[in-house]
Design a protein around this nucleic acid. Structure first.
Lengths: 212, 212
DNA sequence: CTATTACGCTACTCCTCAGTAGCGTAATAG
DNA sequence: CTATTACGCTACTGAGGAGTAGCGTAATAG
C-alpha cells in the first residue's frame, strides 16, 4: 500500500536499471507544490491536475510515483521532516528569546507560511485516519514538543519556579493553538506582533514571569 | 441571492396563499440535521442527499427552500443564533465561576457538541467568503465577545488589576483557540478537565490570579 | 366539489475529479 | 546501433454529487 519509493535503485526484481532513469529532481518539486496548494485551498479542493499544472509535470508521471492522492499528500507530509529545533533546541539564554527563536524559525518558510501549511495539513487530516496519524505523529507532536522542552529547560535553569511544572504540557500548546485559531478565523496573514503578544500577554504571565 | 424565506406569508405576488401550505416544522429539522452532518464530516463531504436521507425529507423539498448548498449552510448557521450569554452575561460572583459558566453553557448541546459544530462551520468557512463572513460575524465574534466582557467586568469588580486591561483582547481568545485546536488535533471528545485546565493553568495565571 | 400549491419520488443532466490506457519521444545501458 | 524504461500528452472511464424535470399525491382555500 505504501508505494512511496517505487524503485529502490538497487535490488530490482529483474534489472537494477536499464532504460531511462527516474527524474528524482522532480519529486521534491512535486511535493513542494502539493504543500503549497494544500496551504492555499483545502485538501478536497486540491486536484492532481492542479499539481500537474503547477509543476509542469504530467499527471501520469505523478501517478507513476504515488499510487493515490492520499499517498501523494502523505509523502508531502513526510517530506516536511521535523523542525530543526527538534535536533538542536535554541538556546538564547532566556525563555522569552528561546520562544521567539522557535516562532521566528525559518522552518517551512517562516511563521506565516508555516501556519498556513499547518492549516492545509489539518484539512487533509480530516479525510483519512492514516494521514491524520502521520501528521500528528511526525509534525504537530514533535513541534509542540519543542515548546515543551524549552519550557522545561527554563525550569531547570531556575527561570521558572519548579512548582509550575504541571502547567507546562498545556502551556506548550498555547502558541500553536492561538496561531492556528487566529489564522483560520481571521483569514489573513499573521504578523509577528501577534506571536509576541501571545508570548508576552499569555505565556510568560501564566508562568509568573511577566510584569503583573 | 439570499432566498432564505421563499414565501413571506404576507404580500405574495399573486395570492397570499392558496393550496397546500409550506411545512414549516420541517425547516428546523433540516437545519439541525445540516449542522449535525457538518459536525460529523467536513463541509465538502456533506451532500444534500445525506441531509435528505437523515431528515426523511425529499431532496427536492430542500431545494424548494434553499436554492443552493451554500444557502442551506448559511441558513443553518443563522439558525444557531447567538449564545444566550450575549443577552445575559453570567454573573456567578467570581471570574473563575463566570468563565466556567460560559464553558458549561448548554448552548448548542453543551461544550462537547459545540466545539465539534464550530469545527464543522470552520470547514465550511473555507469554501465561500459569504459563509465565512456570516460565521465570523454572527457566531465566533459574539462568542469571543462574551469572554471579553467577562474579563472586563472582572477588572471593574477589582478582581483583576486594571493595568492588565491591554491583555484582555488576546486572553478572550484563549479558551476558544485552545479547545478548537485540541479538538482538531486530538480528534476525540474534549473533557471538562481540559477547559478547567485552560482556565486554571493559563487564563487565570496570566491575569496574576492563580497561585504562582 | 375544483383550483392551487407543496410534498415525495424517480430519474435525469452536467460537471468535476480520481485514476487509467496508449502512443510518440527522451534518456539511459550495453 | 538496439533494448529498455521514464516522460509528456491526449483521451478516456467511472464515480460521486449539485441541481432539475415531471409525475402522482397530499393538503389547503373557496
Amino acid at each position: 500500500m505504501a508505494s512511496e519509493t517505487p524503485p529502490t535503485g538497487t535490488t530490482k526484481t529483474t534489472d537494477p536499471h536499464a532504460g531511462r532513469p527516474y527524474d528524482r529532481s522532480g519529486d521534491a518539486l512535486i511535493l513542494a507544490a502539493t504543500l503549497d496548494l494544500l496551504a492555499e485551498r483545502s485538501y478536497e479542493r486540491v486536484t492532481l491536475d492542479d499539481v500537474a499544472a503547477r509543476t509542469g509535470k504530467a499527471k501520469t508521471t505523478i501517478y507513476r510515483r504515488w499510487a493515490t492522492k492520499d499517498d501523494l499528500v502523505l509523502a508531502a507530509t513526510r517530506s516536511i521532516g521535523q523542525p530543526p529545533e527538534v535536533a538542536e533546541l535554541p538556546d538564547e539564554g532566556t525563555l522569552r528569546s528561546d520562544l521567539l527563536a522557535v516562532v521566528d524559525s525559518p522552518w517551512l518558510g517562516g511563521p506565516a507560511r508555516r501556519i498556513v501549511i499547518f492549516a492545509g495539513l489539518l484539512s487533509a487530516a480530516r479525510s483519512s485516519p492514516a494521514l491524520s496519524d502521520a501528521i500528528r505523529l511526525e509534525i504537530t507532536e514533535p513541534y509542540v514538543d519543542v515548546y515543551r522542552r524549552i519550557l522545561e529547560r527554563a525550569i531547570d535553569r531556575g527561570e521558572i519556579p519548579p512548582q509550575l511544572a504541571s502547567r507546562v504540557p498545556i502551556l506548550a500548546d498555547v502558541i500553536p493553538a492561538m496561531s492556528s485559531h487566529r489564522s483560520s478565523t481571521s483569514g489573513g496573514v499573521i504578523h509577528r506582533d501577534f506571536f509576541v503578544a501571545v508570548i508576552d500577554d499569555v505565556l510568560l504571565p501564566a508562568l509568573g514571569a511577566g510584569a503583573t
